[in-house]
Design a protein around this nucleic acid. Structure first.
Length: 789
DNA sequence: AAATCGACTTGTGCGAAAGTCC
DNA sequence: GGACTTTCGCACAAGTCGATTT
């Protein structure tokens, strides 16, 4: 199951065609070009929001933010759609550059830029670079000059989204807005959100739509770059419940004897006890890390006594927790309802923030409880103690004024700040890796939604330029400069295989995983010929979350030869791209297109693949059920491309086993079980055939026969395999991640619209909340019909 | 100019809730 | 109505990428 077959995207030409064909879909209207120098300069000036009534009520004390009602935005020349030539560096960006260079004219700035580019190239030009088979000495360390200074502003100049088309419908839409509720409201009577005319499945309980207000931010003007909010009010984090010491009968044993531990020591012991039947506790690093950290919280007496983890017996604790778990399950309805009510209450109080006058859900308002760090893969820090977070560790970020959240009694915050250039509400430093953790808003919020929208807009812009970009990097395969060649080959992988960028990482701090730029020689194998294709690169490495990426990919001859060169005179543990890192790559990409980075390719290729596959697989005459099958298959192609396959879930295997046993006993075979039997049977046959083939003397007729049989059976097996795969398509591969993070929701929704599939079939409640902007844009806009499927 | 930091997105796994089956 | 499955949401780890520090 680990092997990823080469995805259909390998066919470059085909893809090119598709892109052009579908220009109308993944395209945009001419930019609504709002940026101006003034605004860029004063990006942190706080601007008063156009207020809606409830705002004041929510913000009882006003917000002494010192914001003035200034709202002048300089009109700048509208940029035409296009983006074709080299001259299309966004206007505002050029200005910024010009300023940096101390030159007033954008023209000059550009020239200077070109000069720099040239200089950089000349400087690098060495004798080593002759031609394709040049000899090149790998650098022991990658050290490349960064030639250009970064842009100082994130300007949104060129391709800001347009506020959705101003249609007359808008007024009607307005009525959909649910009331913004006051914080105080306790009357949670459910019957007031009748105005919701949304496509709601009738059987779904009216899930009290009272929480979040519908903020149609995509119809509003955008804030100047860098300003994330004008007012932000929230209640701070909800801390983990305090530790409750175990009942006196429940004790750990050391060396066979029950021991009383101090509360702190006991607490940490319970973390371990809870994980006893997890694989983690069998790992040396885990135990070593745990024990070291545990000892740190022990009293000196305890430390003296407890010297060996192996002599610790947590069994009694573990059993106790299991019992508690059982008890929880067996609680009465009333008890359960009570707990739920409590949770809802917490959600109401802590789970909401008011941002620019709108109530928005918070994603993770509960502070992570203490526990043992569960790193993935071979993480060097696994088992370390994740300490309890106290108010004194927490930084609060919110509006100035009286609505600053109060710390729990007897405590104070680490800091309260009012930084509207960031989106987080609270932050703290986590104790294992020392990295930052944040409380942020839910994906349905404006702040997240807008960012998501921008992401897909960038991907759309890439669509228009991808042809040229591909031409350019293919040209670079022949470059005299090794650094350029490496860059172009890496980019090719990122584009073709949707690899991640691959930042360097510290192996003392994290598991040894790689992405494109950090690939090492040992991660690829070159096959002059494989499976009937020539120039095949075999990738085999651990990527994010230590998920294996294993793929055989046919590549162009030039790429193949380049790889050979890159690998010359290197050890397996040497970097494949020794003259490249993500910073350089992204800097190059930024020069090709505003906002372009490595990850945009993943978004773009995922989205275009979905659209392409939907076009190919959808049959308008089929029923909704079949159409959904097609949709899921298209989605699955994307998941394959992104390598979002999860190991066959344990539950799935178990299910199969159970089914089989049942079936045997009751002779009641359902189709799933039959498939599974067939499959296993066939597999056995194949194995046998293989052995027969092996046993038969080569050259003899028997051998030939066995070989044929083997081939035939193998094919049959493959057929069954794919059939099963189809049936269980949604279980073998995790579609969720690509659906949530890579697929432009507008494609899915436009597809629904065109083929009369209810959106609810494709997106569940949460997803619809997250993608409300897209649903609105497509469903209420004739643009929605311009997608070609 | 590299190393580190900070903020944010992407990813998996797990537990609870919801659904299904007998 | 209880046992088992499947789905969903959340927790939180692990990436990306630009900014800041050294």
């Amino acid at each position: 199951m680990t092997e990823v077959s080469a995805v259909p995207l390998a066919n470059e030409n085909h893809r090119h065609e598709e892109f052009n064909q579908m220009d109308g879909d993944y395209s945009r209207d001419s930019a609504n070009f709002e940026s101006s120098m003034e605004i860029n300069e004063s990006s942190n000036v706080i601007k008063e929001e156009p207020n809606n009534g409830s705002f004041e009520e929510n913000m009882k004390n006003g917000t002494g933010n010192g914001h003035g009602p200034e709202k002048e935005q300089l009109k700048s020349p509208k940029k035409e759609d296009g983006y074709e030539s080299d001259d299309d560096i966004p206007w505002a960006q050029r200005l910024a550059k010009a300023k940096q260079n101390g030159s007033g004219s954008e023209k000059k700035a550009k020239d200077k830029d070109r000069e720099k580019e040239k200089n950089g190239k000349l400087k690098k030009k060495k004798k080593e670079d002759s031609d394709e088979d040049e000899e090149y000495k790998p650098e022991p360390k990658k050290k490349e000059k960064r030639k250009h200074k970064e842009e100082s502003e994130n300007d949104y100049s060129e391709d800001d989204y347009k506020p959705a088309k101003k249609k007359q419908k808008k007024d009607k839409e307005k009525t959909k807005k649910t009331e913004v509720k006051k914080e105080k409201k306790t009357s949670s009577g459910g019957s007031q959100s009748q105005s919701q005319s949304q496509t709601q499945s009738p059987k779904k309980k009216k899930k009290q739509e009272d929480e979040e207000d519908v903020w149609e931010w995509w119809k509003e003007e955008k804030k100047p770059a860098g300003v994330k909010w004008n007012t932000l009010v929230h209640r701070g984090p909800l801390f983990a419940p305090l530790y409750e010491p175990l009942p006196s009968g429940i004790r750990m044993k050391y060396d066979g004897k029950s021991v009383d531990l101090s509360p702190a020591t006991e607490e940490v012991a319970t973390f371990y006890a809870r994980m006893l039947d997890h694989e983690y506790t069998s790992k040396d690093i885990f135990n070593k890390n745990f024990f070291a950290d545990w000892r740190k919280v022990m009293t000196s007496k305890e430390r003296e006594m407890i010297a060996d983890l192996k002599k610790c017996n947590f069994e009694k604790m573990a059993v106790y927790f299991k019992e508690q778990g059982e008890k929880r399950k067996e609680m009465t309805k009333e008890e359960k309802a009570k707990i739920k009510e409590q949770k809802d209450e917490e959600q109401k109080i802590y789970g909401m923030a008011i941002i620019d006058g709108h109530r928005q859900k918070i994603a993770n308002f509960r502070i992570e409880p203490p526990g043992l760090f569960r790193g993935r893969g071979g993480h060097p820090k696994m088992g370390k103690l994740k300490k309890r977070i106290q108010p004194e560790d927490v930084i609060i970020n919110c509006s100035k004024g009286g609505d600053v959240p109060q710390p729990p009694p007897g405590h104070k915050w680490k800091e309260v700040r009012h930084d509207n250039s960031v989106t987080w509400l609270c932050s703290w430093t986590e104790s294992v890796l020392g990295s930052h953790k944040y409380i942020m808003l839910n994906p349905s919020s404006k702040i997240k939604g807008e960012k998501d929208y921008e992401k897909y807009e960038t991907a759309r812009r890439l669509k228009k330029r991808i042809g040229k970009i591909r031409e350019a990097y293919q040209e670079d395969w022949k470059s005299k400069e090794m650094r350029v060649r490496q860059r172009s080959v890496a980019l090719y992988f990122i584009d073709k295989l949707a690899l991640r960028a691959g930042n360097e990482k510290d192996t003392d701090e994290a598991a040894d995983t790689v992405g494109c730029c950090s690939l090492r020689v040992e991660h690829i194998k070159l096959h002059d010929e494989h499976d009937g294709k020539e120039y095949v690169v075999e990738f085999d490495f651990l990527g994010k979350d230590s998920i294996r990426y294993h793929n055989f990919v046919h590549v162009e001859k030039r790429v193949y030869k380049n790889l050979k060169i890159f690998m010359e005179n290197k050890n397996g543990s040497d970097d494949l791209f020794d003259r490249l890192d993500t910073a350089m790559l992204n800097e190059h990409l930024r020069q090709l297109m505003d906002g372009l980075t490595a990850k945009v390719f993943r978004t773009y290729n995922a989205s275009i693949t979905l659209q392409e596959q939907l076009a190919k697989l959808t049959n308008p005459d089929e029923n909704v059920h079949h159409k959904m099958l097609s949709y899921n298959r298209a989605n699955r192609r994307v998941a394959e491309l992104c390598n979002h396959q999860r190991a066959v879930p344990k539950t799935f295997e178990k299910t199969m086993e159970n089914l089989q046993n049942k079936a045997r006993h009751r002779e009641l075979l359902d189709s799933k079980t039959i498939d599974n039997f067939q499959y296993k049977e066939k597999k056995k046959e194949v194995k046998e055939a293989k052995r027969e083939k092996k046993d038969a003397k080569s050259g003899t007729a028997a051998h030939e026969k066995a070989k044929k049989k083997y081939q035939r059976l193998k094919e049959q097996l493959e057929k069954i395999e794919t059939q099963m795969k189809d049936k269980d398509e949604n279980k073998q591969i995790a579609l969720g991640t690509s659906k949530l993070n890579y697929l432009d929701p507008r494609i899915s929704i436009a597809w629904c619209k065109k083929f009369n599939v209810p959106v609810e079939k494709v997106f569940n409640r949460t997803q619809r909340d997250k993608f409300r902007w897209a649903i609105d844009m497509i469903m209420n806009d004739e643009d929605g019909d311009s997608y070609e499927f």
